[in-house]
Design a protein around this nucleic acid. Structure first.
Lengths: 221, 221
DNA sequence: TCTACTTTGTGTACAGGTAACACTAACTAG
DNA sequence: CTAGTTAGTGTTACCTGTACACAAAGTAGA
């Protein structure tokens, strides 16, 4: 082992399933490819690692290049995807990632290398390039399973938020409605959030505002 | 993305944390390295992927080469380990795996490339090469967390087994004793095992024998 | 053959978490 | 001041996990 023969032809890439919540719906970020053999196809943002990249730093760089997205907050590794035929142009092993980001922190912007970037509803995806359908499905499953055990939700909520906003985010991610009283009980029992003052939204009864106690706690490998 | 520059210098390896249970203790398979810079150090079995290997097939091949271990039953991917400095001789991204195997199916056998192979108690590991300490720890955590949700245990139990044997395996893996009545209740409630006839072990009251209904069910990504 | 020893096999009670369920309080707009 | 909308609050039933003790079945050896 570890013979380091110079003949190995495998390349290493990183892909990212980036989620956000817009309009009460879970969305995933896709880019549209220009190059063959996937011309016109949508795909997860991704690309090859530089020699000094970690997979994580590669993802951050790629997100800026391909979508104008700065600052990766929460970003976690998903799995390695290594089917030999997954890239028709050559042997590429991809390290999949997933993240949850606030929809407002940046404006999506494409580059000449791609024809488009946009959010898609996570439950209505177009056909995807490579094995990205499987990657997106695995990422969604992990996102849902981590939601209950960690404080990922902070990355898509504003600094100060109401419990109704938090509940709406959880519902969007899980894809089902939750009971209001049970949600409040459980969410507060997790001890991740602390109350502040009050709020005066455009109309109706003001709601108490909360903030997350810390911005990094459980969840990582 | 996917420019396929021929200049990328990263290589792809696969490592494996192979567990078994011997004498009521959880054991992990290590090999002893001859080559610099880890001469004399113990390490997880592993090596570079061939151009047509999947990570999984590479692990199977490597286990046969490095330890004489045939037939990989249960083998699951753990994570990609991509710290640039993890291999002092060059940039290598490793795809970690873990498995649980029966201790009796083969005789361990080393090769001229390594000075030794043997089982080590999982709670008393020697210093390891590369980032294998972290890989082994992550593998153990995953093994424990999958134990409750899947039927991995079949891979270390004989075809026909008693509930006491099963309990002993679970205790070895989890590293703590379990309550007999609770274990039997839960194990049978999982519905993975079905009863057979009876047994006459060397001494004492005979125990009912069970078998697993299927040899592949839950647990995979 | 009887006794001592060892292992198998079984049920219940309590604690904690999850899921279902409806009404009053506070504010805005007209 | 009324109608409309959202915020906020407790209790009950159920399920899961955990703690705990004793009788039954066989072997080995006196």
């Amino acid at each position: 082992m570890r013979r380091h023969p110079s003949k190995q032809q495998i390349k290493v890439a990183a892909d990212a399933a980036i989620f956000t919540v817009i309009g009460g719906r879970l969305q995933i970020l896709l880019i549209r490819m220009k190059k063959r053999p996937f011309t016109g196809r949508w795909a997860l943002p991704g690309g090859l690692l530089g020699d000094r990249d970690t997979a994580r730093s590669a993802v951050c760089r790629i997100l800026e290049e391909q979508a104008g997205m700065t600052s990766c907050y929460f970003l976690e590794q998903l799995a390695a995807f290594d089917t030999p035929a997954r890239d028709p142009l050559g042997r590429v092993v991809s390290i999949g990632h997933f993240a949850l980001v606030p929809p407002t922190d940046f404006r999506l912007r494409t580059t000449p290398k791609y024809s488009d970037v946009r959010w898609w509803r996570a439950d209505r995806l177009p056909p995807l390039a490579y094995d990205h359908k499987a990657q997106a499905a695995a990422a969604l499953a992990r996102l849902r399973s981590e939601l209950g055990r960690s404080n990922i939700a902070w990355s898509v909520l504003p600094r100060a938020f109401t419990l109704a906003q938090a509940q709406s985010v959880y519902e969007a991610i899980l894809g089902r409605t939750l009971d209001k009283r049970n949600f409040r009980k459980k969410f507060l029992a997790l001890g991740l959030a602390a109350p502040l003052g009050r709020k005066s939204s455009g109309a109706h009864r003001p709601a108490a505002l909360y903030r997350f106690r810390s911005r990094r706690a459980a969840g990582s490998l």
